[in-house]
Simulated assay, not measured.
Amino acid sequence: MTGLGAVFRPQLPPERLRAVVQLADATGLEELWLWEDCFREGGISAAAAALAWSGQVRVGVGLLPVPLRNVAITAMEVATLHRLFPGRAILGVGHGVQDWMGQVGARVESPVTLLREHLDALRALLRGERVTTDGRYVKLDDVALDWPPTGPVEILAGATGPRTLRLAGAAADGTILTASTAPDGVRRARQLIDEGRESAGRTEPHKVVVYLLTATATGPDAAARLRAELAEEGLESVPDLGVAGDADTVAKAVQRLAEAGADTVILQPTGDEPDPEAFVRFAAEVRALVP
Rank of each mutant, 00 (worst) to 15 (best):
L114W: 14
L29C: 05
H82S: 02
L126W: 10
W53L: 10
I155S: 03
L226T: 05
V210W: 01
W35D: 02
G96R: 11
L119D: 06
A244R: 03
R83Y: 06
L226C: 02
D134P: 04
C38G: 08
S45I: 12
A231M: 04
A47W: 02
E233S: 13
L32R: 06
G55N: 15
D246R: 08
F39P: 15
W35R: 11
A49W: 14
V57R: 07
P111R: 06
A228Y: 01
V108A: 01
G43D: 06
E285W: 00
P10E: 08
D25E: 03
S180C: 03
Q103C: 08
R187Q: 14
M76K: 01
V250T: 07
V153P: 12
E236T: 09
A144K: 04
A19H: 04
L81T: 11
A253R: 07
L63Q: 02
S237W: 05
V280Q: 07
I155P: 08
D99A: 13
E36H: 07
Q56S: 14
G102W: 04
V265T: 09
L115V: 03
A24G: 11
V78I: 09
A200S: 01
A144M: 10
F279V: 03
T264V: 14
T132A: 00
L119Q: 03
L167S: 13
V93D: 00
L165S: 08
L167Q: 11
P13T: 08
I193S: 03
T270H: 02
A189S: 15
R187P: 05
L64D: 08
A283Q: 07
